[in-house]
Amino acid sequence: MTDVKNLEELFQAKVDGELKIEPKDWMPDGYRKNLVRQISQHAHSEVVGMLPEGNWITRAPNLRRKAILLAKIQDEAGHGLYLYSAVETLGTTREKTVDDLLGGKAKYSSIFNYPTLTWADIGAVGWLVDGAAIMNQVMLCRTSYGPYARAMVRICKEESFHQRQGYEIMSVLSKGTPEQREMAQDALNRWWWPSLMMFGPSDANSPHSAQSMKWKIKRQSNDELRQTFIDRTVQQAEVIGLKVPDPKLKWNESTQHYDSGEIDWTEFNNVVAGNGPCNKERLAARNKAHDDGAWVREAAMAYAAKKAKRKAA
């Protein structure tokens, strides 16, 4: 019998050799737990993330935008589903994962606890929030756990229109009337910092980061990804004539990156702790959908059982 230490070494050798870990492989408990935590948080973020955008479906300004927004939010539901499926390959049922969310035990990305106040927020969410998410997701296409990596490849393919449609909204607004321009700038002002927070605490304060890097669950650090996001987004803002709300933002010739101001981690911690503007509403909406749907799920099972019985008879 191989002992655990030996198994761990074999496991790490596979990871180091860029071999994907598959569901039936032996894996350290910590790896499994870490994955279940991360993938389910990711899944919850997709599903809760439907709500702030859903807030504008019935007020979308024209039929084209309405169809696009519906299709986009539908994609988020699909992405949540792919990710819940990946969690199931680790032996945790969707029921259990979803119960943790509904009971307030599980986390999801704090960004979705911010409200979408104007139509421009739909642009900002697509451009900044999806933009930040994509940075992470592209990295995760190479994550060490096979089912997670495969889900991410599918998600990245579908996600590529999300950021573009958001940027397009912002671009149209910034070329529009003075009110529209103001709306766009205001949305950028409100969403900029929360988007930067999406990459998580800076590397020095990130509790799971080092181990996740060793296991190649994560492949790039929070700060690296955040910096790339800033560099790309500042340029995009310039193109459409919007101003990133950071007085300390400055191009640094020697690093070839933008220097930027400090993130307000107190705000971040507050939102994570449940004191964001919409934490309660988001969770209440998910719980209501789940509770209201209980009789529907039950009816479908009851009918399936009856039908199977009749077929057998």
Partner: peptide, 11 residues
């Protein structure tokens, strides 16, 4: 391609 939940095969 992946998995999903459904009450019966048709669904």
């Amino acid at each position: 391609v992946g998995s999903l939940h459904a009450a019966d095969a048709q669904m």
